[in-house]
Simulated assay, not measured.
Amino acid sequence: MTAVTGERRVTMVDYGGSNMRSVQKAFEAVGVAIEVTSDPEVARRAVRLVLPGVGAFRPGMDALRSRGLDGAIVDAVAAGTPLLGICLGMQLLFAASEEMGRHKGLGLLPGQVVAFVGRPPTANAPGLKVPHMGWNRIRHEDQHPLLAGVPNGSYAYFVHSYYCAPANPQDILATTDYGVEFAAIVGRGRLYGIQFHPEKSQRIGLAILRNFAQMETG
Rank of each mutant, 00 (worst) to 15 (best):
V180L: 15
D177P: 05
Y178M: 05
A165P: 02
Q170R: 14
I185S: 02
V159T: 11
Y155E: 06
D177K: 13
D171W: 04
F158C: 03
S154H: 07
P151A: 14
G149F: 10
A165R: 11
R188D: 05
G149T: 11
A174T: 02
E181M: 12
G153Y: 06
G189S: 11
L173W: 04
G179D: 10
V150I: 15
R188I: 08
A174N: 01
S154T: 12
V159Q: 09
V150W: 01
F158D: 01
T176S: 14
A165S: 14
D171G: 07
G179F: 07
S161P: 07
G149N: 11
C164Y: 02
L173N: 02
G187M: 07
G149M: 13
G149A: 12
R188C: 07
A174I: 02
V159H: 07
S161V: 11
Y178T: 03
A148R: 15
D171I: 07
I185Q: 00
A174P: 00
N168V: 14
V159R: 06
G149Q: 11
G187P: 05
A174S: 04
E181A: 13
Y178I: 03
Y162A: 02
P166D: 08
D177R: 14
G189K: 12
I185W: 01
A156F: 04
Y155W: 09
G153S: 08
P166L: 06
I185C: 10
P151E: 13
R188H: 11
G187I: 05
G189D: 13
R188P: 03
Y162P: 02
N168A: 14
V180C: 08
N152R: 15
G153Q: 09
G153N: 08
H160T: 06
T175M: 08
A167N: 13
V150D: 00
Y155V: 03
T176M: 02
A167S: 15
G153V: 07
C164D: 05
G189E: 11
P151K: 13
Y178H: 05
Y178L: 04
A183P: 00
G179K: 06
A148S: 14
A165G: 05
G179Y: 07
F158E: 00
T175G: 09
R188W: 06
S161H: 10
A167M: 13
V150C: 07
V180H: 03
F182D: 00
P166H: 07
V159S: 09
Y178C: 03
P169I: 09
G153T: 09
V180Y: 02
A167Y: 11
D171M: 09
Y163N: 06
Y155F: 13
T176C: 09
A183R: 00
N152F: 10
V180T: 14
I172K: 09
